Amino acid sequence: MSRTYKRRPDARLCGSNSLQNLEAALAEIKSSRINLHSTAEKYGIDKMKLSCLMNNKHQKKPGGQTVLTNEEEIALVQNLLRASSWGFPSTEYDIRLLIKCYLDQQGKKVKSFQHNLPGKDWVKSFLNHHRCVLSVRLANNNKCCHAKVSPEARLIQGT
């Protein structure tokens, strides 16, 4: 089972300001109507956050950075869906090996993975992140010849 992380009560709130407030504050500063300190007080935004936004610093998201980009994750999900539609569903271990092979081919070394192999928690989090598209199911061991139904049998069954 994947771990559930809880925010510490004393942790700082990243991204607690609305996007409209930030844009309005930046527009006021750029038009040089008000200085940085009074703009931060007016909109209730931390002045260091405004300063970083003005100077284009700290562009990454707060917290740990992801191993795969959004485009890579979307491509992986599409490939997993395509393989399952062909009759080859993937297990969690298959996904781990697929990520390891991809990282090795790209020449990426991820320090948090042993030998570039993601852990079980990483796969659980990945599946949880894409739960609207991917799901874990227990499949029966049916052979293809048993799974195929002829058109005559469909007529008899009424489907």
Results as ranks from 00 to 15, higher is better:
residue 2 S to V: 12
residue 3 R to E: 04
residue 3 R to D: 11
residue 5 Y to E: 04
residue 6 K to V: 06
residue 9 P to S: 09
residue 13 L to H: 11
residue 13 L to P: 00
residue 13 L to C: 08
residue 15 G to D: 01
residue 15 G to M: 00
residue 16 S to W: 02
residue 19 L to P: 04
residue 22 L to T: 00
residue 27 A to I: 08
residue 27 A to Q: 13
residue 29 I to D: 02
residue 29 I to N: 06
residue 31 S to E: 15
residue 31 S to I: 12
residue 35 N to A: 02
residue 36 L to K: 12
residue 39 T to V: 07
residue 39 T to C: 07
residue 42 K to L: 15
residue 43 Y to L: 03
residue 43 Y to P: 06
residue 50 L to C: 05
residue 50 L to Y: 02
residue 55 N to E: 08
residue 56 N to D: 14
residue 61 K to D: 14
residue 64 G to N: 10
residue 64 G to D: 11
residue 69 T to Y: 12
residue 69 T to Q: 10
residue 70 N to A: 12
residue 71 E to A: 14
residue 71 E to T: 15
residue 72 E to P: 04
residue 73 E to G: 08
residue 73 E to A: 07
residue 76 L to K: 01
residue 78 Q to L: 08
residue 78 Q to C: 01
residue 84 S to D: 14
residue 86 W to Y: 12
residue 87 G to D: 14
residue 88 F to P: 02
residue 89 P to R: 05
residue 90 S to I: 01
residue 94 D to P: 04
residue 96 R to K: 13
residue 100 K to H: 15
residue 103 L to I: 10
residue 105 Q to N: 15
residue 105 Q to K: 14
residue 108 K to E: 12
residue 108 K to R: 15
residue 109 K to A: 14
residue 111 K to C: 10
residue 117 L to R: 05
residue 119 G to R: 11
residue 120 K to N: 15
residue 126 F to Y: 03
residue 129 H to F: 02
residue 133 V to D: 03
residue 136 V to Y: 01
residue 137 R to N: 13
residue 137 R to D: 03
residue 142 N to R: 06
residue 146 H to G: 07
residue 148 K to D: 13
residue 159 T to W: 13
